[in-house]
Simulated scan of single mutants.
Amino acid sequence: MSQVPLLTEHDETLTFQDHYLRVRHLRHATSEAAGERPTLVFLHDSLGSIRLWRDFPAHLALALGCHALVYDRRGYGESAPFGPEPRTVAYLEQEALLVPAVLRAAGVSQAVLFGHSDGGTLALLTAAQEPGVVAAVVTVGAHVFVEDVTLAGIRVAQQQYSTTDLPQRLARYHGTRTEPLFRAWAETWLHPTFRNWNIERYLPQIQCPVLVMQGAEDEYGTAAQVEAIATQVAGTAHAVLLPGLGHTPHRQDPEQVLKLAVNFLRAVL
């Protein structure tokens, strides 16, 4: 995908009581209606960051005539390192409680949440607790419960972290945060107490439209995740399995994911 014109980009640091977050604002420079439309808010995955979204947020913002917000969660990218407290089984539920504060600090009153993997789970949890703020949700590879394939995929990633240049590649985006964030992700999901983690009870609280996307060859989840989300949310849901794609369809085939997201969001917004 080519570089996107017609958008202005501004990075800032939002300061909270005990940490700071790096955020990126993408302002649509030619759409007079952008200020009246919901802001696209991108929630990254368990190893993600602002920069790992590449230019996908800009393309979606341009196509829809919307502003966009992308941010590094705590412990990722250029945001503050993790705090001293160890990650718990409920870390995603706890993180979702922070998303509304980020939106308020960034000046976002109405949002379309676009979340990948952990970010997709956060988008669902946020929509459940903030129906007045979240206008729509798009998930890519989100999880609402733990599957054997998920744990197997994480074990493969652990092996790659020990035997390949994966640490160095991640360090390009996370620097000294790389080791703590990888361990927090892998060790939490592989801990025996995490096997029963499940957020399906929150899905009926989601009233907004939801687009549920997942690669048919996703190495971290099966179609059961898609079915669970699409059949249990209270709002309109559209489910798409993408043939031949894995856990990062927006990087493997950004044009297809962009087209699906644009068509869905134009129809519901």
Rank of each mutant, 00 (worst) to 15 (best):
V108F: 06
R155W: 10
V140E: 15
A127C: 05
A224G: 06
Q3H: 13
V138G: 07
L242K: 05
F114C: 14
Q94C: 03
L166Y: 08
T13P: 11
A128D: 00
G221L: 03
E9N: 07
F114V: 15
F264I: 09
F114A: 07
S49P: 10
H59Q: 15
L103K: 00
A58F: 09
L203W: 12
Q17F: 02
G120F: 11
A239P: 11
F182R: 04
Q158L: 13
Q160D: 14
R177M: 12
A184M: 12
T193C: 06
T188W: 08
Q214C: 03
R155Q: 14
S117T: 01
Y220V: 11
G83S: 10
G77F: 09
E227F: 05
Y202I: 00
W53I: 02
S79E: 08
L21G: 10
E93V: 09
S2E: 12
A234H: 14
Q94E: 15
I154L: 15
L113K: 00
G221D: 11
D165C: 01
V137T: 12
L269S: 06
E200H: 05
Q160H: 11
G119M: 10
Q158S: 09
V112I: 15
A136N: 01
F82C: 01
E32R: 14
L103S: 11
A128E: 04
I229T: 02
L92D: 07
H59G: 08
G107C: 01
L181N: 08
N196Q: 15
Q232F: 04
R87M: 12
R169Q: 15
Y173D: 04
Y91E: 13
G35C: 00
L26Y: 14
G215T: 06
E78C: 12
V133H: 00
V240A: 01
G65S: 06
Y173W: 13
L47R: 02
Q3F: 13
R87G: 01
V138P: 02
E219Y: 07
G115C: 09
S49Q: 09
A58L: 03
H143G: 02
D11C: 06
C66F: 11
L124Q: 02
V144D: 10
F145S: 11
D11E: 14
V212H: 02
R266Y: 05
C208D: 00
F182P: 00
E179A: 14
P243N: 10
A237D: 03
K259F: 12
L122K: 04
P81A: 09
S117N: 05
L125R: 06
S117H: 09
G119P: 09
G153C: 10
L26S: 05
A142S: 14
G221K: 01
G120T: 04
